[in-house]
């Protein structure tokens, strides 16, 4: 039986804004059947006290506990059984317990992805699937970006591609996937900045491109699903946060995290909870995250065929 699209909500929080996250979301091994529309609304929050300044972990009394909250709306449609289209739009809010700097909030980047099921092979050995996802994102609002860690996003336009391979047998499954994200340079409000220990008198900041990968192990049946994943995100270039300075968009952000989610299906409705922790990183916060979300699916076309099944 075909499963609904699952939003694993693997979200990089803290100093890695959601733009990198959005490209992460269509990462599972399942497809929406033709004619099915799935709406997703999720809330998640993350906190960190420690962060990595370059490779050095530190605390900063002037920040205290840094908190990011986001509300993510997504929708996915089965155009065909093999092709899904997805859109996402997050609202993000940042704050810190000790800083006098103004927390930021607002609608971040609009994302769209196409997901195609390249290969599906079922047999006694189980099911093998391969998917390719391509997508992109654009800032949905003119938010303040050169204000990390408080900025709600990097404001870069992105294009991403990923390959997902999965194996499932008797409800158990394993997914491995890797992706790359090209990120545009970003126009900032000031017209000079230090990058790689050199002063640039320009208002165009180079935002490094990024790659990510993850390994997921899970179990799913018609009522219930749970999975754990080990996730790695890394910029492909960039510099470190200068000693005792603020992070900026040029920084080479990297992190390894573990994430878990559980899901219960109640007819057309699913309830999901997720949690994650950053294990190590570079130029990011040591974030712990928690989230909850609901998704609701409806058959909007291809109803007859669906009924036949």
């Amino acid at each position: 039986m075909k499963q609904l699209l699952t939003f694993t909500a693997i979200i990089f929080l803290g100093m890695i804004p959601i733009s990198s996250v959005s490209a992460q979301t269509p990462t599972d091994h399942l497809m929406m059947p033709k004619g099915t529309l799935c709406n997703f609304l999720g809330y998640s929050t993350s906190r960190w006290d420690n962060y990595w300044e370059g490779a050095n972990k530190r605390i900063n009394e002037n920040i205290g506990t840094f908190k990011t909250e986001n509300i993510l709306f997504m929708a996915a449609l089965g155009v065909t059984d093999k092709l899904n289209v997805m859109v996402g739009l997050p609202y993000v809010k940042t704050s810190s317990s000790a800083s006098y700097l103004a927390g930021q909030q607002g609608i971040q980047d609009f994302s769209v992805w196409l997901k195609y099921n390249l290969i599906e092979k079922k047999g006694d050995f189980g099911t093998i699937k391969a998917f390719v996802t391509v997508g992109g994102s654009l800032p949905a609002t003119n938010y303040n970006t050169d204000f990390l860690p408080f900025s709600i996003g990097l404001k870069a336009k992105t294009a991403s591609g990923r390959l997902i391979l999965s194996y499932a047998n008797k409800g158990f499954y394993a997914t491995v996937q890797g992706g790359a994200t090209l990120r545009s340079n970003v126009e900032i409000d000031r017209n000079s900045f230090i990058f790689n220990n050199k002063l640039y008198e320009s208002n165009i900041m180079p935002v490094p491109n990024a790659a990510d990968g993850s390994l997921t192990l899970g179990f799913a049946n018609t009522r219930f699903q749970t999975a754990v994943s080990l996730d790695r995100f890394g910029c492909l270039s960039g510099d470190d946060i200068r000693y005792n300075d603020m992070p900026i968009l040029t920084n080479k952000m990297e992190q390894t995290s573990v994430n878990w989610f559980g899901r219960v299906n109640l007819g057309h409705l699913s309830v999901i909870v997720n949690a994650g922790k950053v294990l190590n990183g570079r130029n990011v916060g040591e974030a712990t995250s928690l989230g909850g979300s609901v998704l609701y699916w409806v058959q909007i076309f291809n109803k007859a065929k669906k009924a036949d099944k």
Binding site: L118, G161, A180, L182, N185, M205, P206, G238
Partner: peptide, 23 residues
């Protein structure tokens, strides 16, 4: 597909490493 994907990734990596600021 994997070869293609690796090719894309490699070329991305090369471009990414050259990302510089304007002067």
């Amino acid at each position: 597909y994997i070869q293609f994907f690796v090719l894309v990734l490699v070329s991305t990596l090369i471009n990414a490493c050259q990302k510089t600021a304007e002067t």
